[in-house]
Simulated scan of single mutants.
Amino acid sequence: MILVTGGTGLVGSHLLYKLLKNNEKVKAIYRREHKLELVKKVFAYYSADFESLYQKIEWINADITDVPSLQIAFKNVNYVYHCAAFVSFEPDKYHQLRKINIEGTANVVNLCISHQVKKLCYVSSIATIGHHQDPQKLITEDTNWNQDDDNSVYAITKYGAEIEVWRGTQEGLDAVILNPGIIIGPGLWNSGGSSSLIKKIYKGIPYYTTGVTAYVDVDDVVRAMLLLMQSPIKNERFIVISENLSFKEFQHQTALALGVKPASKEATSLILGIGWRLDWLNRLFTGKRRRLSKHMTKSAKSITKYDASKLKNALNFEFKPMQISIEESCKLFLEDLNNDS
Rank of each mutant, 00 (worst) to 15 (best):
I126T: 11
H132F: 13
N179M: 11
Q136A: 12
I198Y: 08
V222I: 15
I139Y: 00
G130K: 03
G204L: 04
V240D: 12
I241T: 12
P262F: 07
K203Q: 14
N151P: 00
L272Y: 12
P206D: 03
D134R: 08
N146P: 00
N179A: 10
G211V: 09
K265A: 10
E162T: 14
R167Q: 10
T128V: 15
R237T: 06
D142R: 02
I239V: 14
I163P: 00
K137I: 08
K203V: 00
N151H: 09
I205H: 01
K158F: 12
L258I: 12
G185D: 03
H252V: 04
R237F: 08
E164H: 02
G160T: 04
P206F: 03
L258A: 11
L197G: 03
G259H: 07
G185L: 07
G204V: 03
D142I: 00
M229L: 14
T169G: 05
Q136I: 10
L256V: 15
D150H: 14
V221P: 04
L138R: 02
S242F: 08
T143G: 03
Q147M: 06
V218F: 10
G211R: 01
K234L: 06
T268R: 04
I184Q: 02
V240P: 13
T254Y: 11
Y202G: 02
I177E: 03
D142M: 06
L228Q: 10
Y159W: 15
V221R: 09
K199Y: 06
I184S: 05
I139K: 01
T157H: 13
I239A: 05
S152I: 14
N151S: 04
S231E: 13
R223Q: 14
S195F: 09
V222E: 03
I198F: 11
P180R: 02
I177L: 12
N179L: 15
Y208M: 05
A127E: 09
A224G: 05
E141H: 06
L227S: 14
H131I: 15
E236K: 12
R167W: 05
I182H: 11
T213H: 03
R237Y: 09
M229N: 06
A263R: 03
A155W: 12
G259I: 03
D150L: 06
N151W: 04
N190R: 13
L173P: 07
L178T: 15
E164K: 10
V218I: 13
A127I: 07
P206M: 07
Q133I: 15
Q133V: 15
